[in-house]
């Protein structure tokens, strides 16, 4: 019934000025499409934030209260019982800044990794570069974390710190944390989409990371006597560096060494660049 072979069809299509619509375009075209739809990405991130606020009526309130309650628990369990409170000159702000950063990282990585399976309503009706989904998640998480993090200022004052100009830099560690989590989820979201069982491991890996990243103790102090390899890994562990960056806004002695800073910036940039390509390749194959 069909008079054409695929070669003839392709030739005819080119003559008629048609292009393939059953696969994602070239990488350059893909990036241009992402840029063209930037308003959609932003609007979608805001919509997700609104949705979250509607669903938990005290949405933002919980985003503040939850890390504070966790901090209280850690203070009791680790700071007092295990004695990590002496790791810092001001353990309260050390702990709270760490917990807020960690919560952002964990939540961004969790929702970023699962985003392709949690947005079926949207992806079944509209065609757009799917990479906009993890990007929107990263924006949403950053907005939420920034809103909640305002509470760090009164806590720092109550903990006896004097305001300095570095306090104004607080958004940057959070943005860096989100970018790093985005870079990782560009890979993990594709893996989870291919093998759904992998999502069971996301919370477990996150829990393990939390314990080794020094959320409630100082990595430098606690790994001081560990073998060289272990100590190096512990210090270069990206979440651990990210926690230090946030803390340094309030506690200058927490500022990571310059080689650690260079490391965290380059690994984030690398993850995002390579992740963009990997994600795009996955989209060409699987949609």
């Amino acid at each position: 019934m069909d008079a054409l072979t695929s070669e003839q069809a392709a030739a005819l299509a080119r003559q008629a000025g048609l292009h393939r619509v059953d696969q994602a375009g070239e990488f350059g075209a893909y990036l241009r499409e992402c840029w063209r739809l930037r308003h959609f990405t932003w609007n979608y991130a805001v919509s997700r934030t609104i949705l979250e606020t509607i669903q938990n009526r005290l949405g933002l309130f919980w985003q503040v209260l939850n890390p504070l309650l966790l901090s209280a628990v850690y203070y009791l369990a680790f700071g007092l019982l295990l004695g990590t409170a002496k790791d810092s000159t001001n353990f309260i702000i050390f702990l709270v800044a760490g917990v807020f950063t960690w919560q952002l990282f964990a939540s961004a990585l969790q929702s970023g990794s699962l985003v392709l399976s949690t947005t079926r309503d949207l992806t079944e009706s509209l065609l757009f570069p799917r990479i906009l989904l993890p990007i929107a998640v990263a924006i949403q998480e950053t907005l939420g974390a920034l809103g909640a993090a305002v509470v760090l200022y009164p806590i720092a004052l109550l903990a006896g710190l004097r305001p300095t100009w570095t306090w104004l830099l607080l958004p940057f560690p959070f943005i860096l944390t989100s970018l790093f989590a985005l870079g990782v989820s560009l890979f993990t979201s594709r893996w989870v989409d291919r093998v759904h069982d992998l999502k069971q491991f996301v919370p477990i890996v996150l829990r393990m990371l939390m314990f080794v990243s020094g959320v409630f103790y100082d990595v430098t102090i606690r790994f001081h006597k560990a073998p060289h390899v272990v100590r190096t890994i512990a210090n270069f562990n990206p979440p651990s560096v990210l926690l230090k960056v946030t803390r340094s806004v309030f506690l200058p002695d927490q500022l990571p060494a310059s080689h650690e800073l260079i490391w965290i910036f380059s690994i984030t940039a690398l993850l995002i660049i390579v992740g963009f390509r990997a994600f795009w390749r996955g989209e060409r194959r699987n949609g």
């Binding site: 695929s6 069809a9 392709a10 299509a13 000025g17 048609l18 292009h19 393939r20 619509v21 059953d22 696969q23 992806t123 079944e124 065609l127 194959r285 699987n286 949609g287």
Partner: peptide, 16 residues
């Protein structure tokens, strides 16, 4: 598949 929302196992869709 025609709308680009799903990949065909074989074949192609050409459109303006």
């Amino acid at each position: 598949v025609l709308a680009g929302l799903q990949r065909p196992t074989r074949g192609a869709v050409w459109a303006t």
